[in-house]
Amino acid sequence: MLFSYIFGILIFGYAALTITRFIKKSRQGRCAACALQKACEQKPNTCSNIVQIQKNEPQLIRNQHI
């Protein structure tokens, strides 16, 4: 029984997390499967939002705006 609770919470928690993250990322217009995901997003004339690419760091979903 305890096992079921843990599993249930884990799965639903993970599902909620991924969906919120995806929607956040989608707002910026990026595709999870495309190679450009690491690239910075930039509108003309707004150059302050450069996304930092750190080497050897595959997890670059969150942008760090400088």
Partner: peptide, 23 residues
């Protein structure tokens, strides 16, 4: 290039497609 794109596909399936599937 192949690896990155395929990885993206798997990642997509195991993150929010999984989330959507649960819902």
């Amino acid at each position: 290039s192949t690896w990155d794109k395929s990885k993206g596909f798997v990642k997509k399936a195991t993150t929010f497609i999984l989330g959507g599937t649960v819902v």
